[in-house]
Design a binder for these strands. Structure first.
Lengths: 339, 339
DNA sequence: CTGAAAGCGCTTACAG
DNA sequence: CTGAAAGCGCTTACAG
């Protein structure tokens, strides 16, 4: 029962104008007399005509589609970012073609290649790195790429992150000021820039203070891995009195393990996370954490990618947005501590 | 520095064959001699050629794009579903064009219209209803629509839900069997079929048992609304001894409120949710809930939409998948209770 | 199996 | 402002 698609030619016939006239009426900025506009709009309404975006994309070379590669959707940070990203892009007349990837390099590559087959105007990768081969390929095709919440030095791409090194420092300073003596770190995935930077910032402060971390392991940004790490951390005869965890998602797992072992976060063991996802503010966790200002990060990503798309020649930029420490009850607050 | 796009004509020239030959080599099922295939593949590789999906879509009338409308991304149920949906569709060579919507009818309508402009092969709406006007329009265009986690009687669309009425019954039976006497219900949004069905099932059991609900309010599927509802529920001189909450996302808010008031879920007040999102299984909540088998729901949605796309004339179906009660510690378990 | 040609539904110079 | 025409990059009958 599929009604034949109505095209601009159908509208033209009904309105008694040329097909080009119809096109102009639907092209912002094109010129048409009020009378033509009127006739065309009426005919279009009667016929239920809407321009075929794909055809427009073919001839104009602009698809108004942004490819988005995401992973780690269990981590609340990403759905929240995705929602805002989609809204911001929709408001500008762009839409998101979404690809889910594993966190392996290969996974992202295959997916980005497919993205390019769709003639996307730009690509945003969230929490995913891509190979330099593919980087070259995107660059050659003139497709801007923005790395979201991940940096990649060699790529020549734009990136938007929080000040991860600085965030790691803040966590360490806070924990040190709290008088903790056995500070452990369950790090973010060491295969990612964010995991490495947070850890490096954290270590830099400890080192300058002459403190050796109680323990340091890679939590891989995975809930189950963090659970296992936390179990082992508290299994020995001496335990950490503080744990800096590479992101909130893992910190929740750590807090669950502590409580099940009868340890109270904030009292027996201080826990500091990274991100400040909504859940971190819920009473069940009330997690002290370094906030990644997701809204500002998204806005920056949108701004930079649109600039590169709409003003060819715009240079890629590496944007870092400061994150601040959010004090809650999961970690002891140093006497007289002021941000 | 944008290298000119390489087209099938470029490849043809280099391979010394016609443009049609190149097209055939890249069209699954088309005929080409081994020698042609060899020459074309080599030339394509050397040039870095990949078919333009948009051009293919235009002529074939198949975009291999599925439009997805989502909302409520803070509720963990949806990101989890989205991830699996995207993976399942990618595996079949389809991709998702994502639109975020508010939960208002108008929002979804505007968005679905835009989706159709992209010539999507099908539309999946998660947690969003669409108007009958738009339903007509999608039907007329022959675009299958699948409602995910939402039903809509009049639309003639496919839908995939869990057995919501039955789920509401189960919750009520469980709570009654547990000897609770003041059972409240913070319902899912009454503007949605899921919210209404769960409530109706719940009420049907209470009614047959001659029990009047202690209180019944609409939590709108919103965390903050549920927080407020819970506060009021426990503010009076008599309190509920059990609360059935329309989904897990709201149940978490309820548990937070109870604890902050010094009430222990599962002991002072039983809480039962709906969904069984991953967080429900984490120790901090350990929420008793009716599981919506998200994987099976997604698989059913994919199956039905692909059937309708690839075999025109396939009738829409309303699929209901059974959800079972998951026992955890947030609600008292009746003596000798067996599922 | 293969090439020449038409056509998918648009936008955009080009003349008028 | 407007129409005729070319062209975006493909697929697909149609002959051979």
């Amino acid at each position: 029962m599929e009604r034949a698609k109505v095209t601009s030619a159908d509208v033209a016939a009904r309105a008694g104008v040329s097909q080009s006239a119809v096109s102009r009426v639907f092209t912002p900025g094109a010129s048409a007399s009020p009378k033509t506009v009127e006739k065309v709009r009426r005919a279009a309404d009667e016929l239920g005509y809407r321009p075929n975006v794909l055809a427009r994309a073919m001839v104009s070379g602009k698809s108004r589609i942004i490819g988005l590669v995401v992973a780690y959707l269990e981590n609340q940070f990403y759905p929240v970012a995705l929602e805002r990203l989609s809204n911001a892009l929709q408001a500008q007349g762009y839409h998101i073609l979404i690809f889910t990837a594993t966190n392996s390099i290969d996974g992202a590559d295959a997916v980005v290649q497919e993205l390019m087959d769709y003639q996307v105007d730009g690509i945003i990768t969230a929490s995913v790195a891509i190979s330099s081969t593919l980087a070259d390929s995107a660059n050659a095709a003139g497709i801007p790429v923005v790395l979201f919440n991940r940096g990649q030095d060699d790529s020549g791409f734009s990136s938007v992150t929080s000040t991860n090194f600085e965030g790691g420092r803040k966590a360490a300073e806070f924990l040190l000021a709290g008088g903790h003596e056995r500070i452990a770190h369950i790090a973010g995935w060491q295969g990612s820039s964010t995991g490495r930077d947070r850890q490096a910032g954290f270590l830099s402060v400890l080192q300058r203070a002459g403190v050796t971390p109680f323990a340091m392991v890679d939590g891989m940004y995975k809930h189950e891995v963090a659970t296992e790490c936390a179990r082992q951390l508290i299994a020995g005869s001496t335990r950490p009195d503080a744990i800096f965890v590479g992101n909130d998602h893992m910190a929740f797992a750590v807090m669950d393990v502590l409580r099940q072992a009868g340890l109270e976060p904030g009292k027996d063991v201080s826990v500091v996370g990274y991100d400040d996802v909504p859940l971190a503010g819920w009473a069940a966790y009330d997690l002290t954490t370094i906030r990644q200002p997701v809204n500002r990060m998204v806005d920056a990503a949108v701004e930079t990618i649109l600039a590169q798309i709409e003003t060819p020649g715009t240079a890629p930029q590496q944007i870092e947005i400061e994150g601040k420490l959010i004090l809650r009850s999961s970690a002891r607050i140093p006497e007289g501590w002021t941000q």
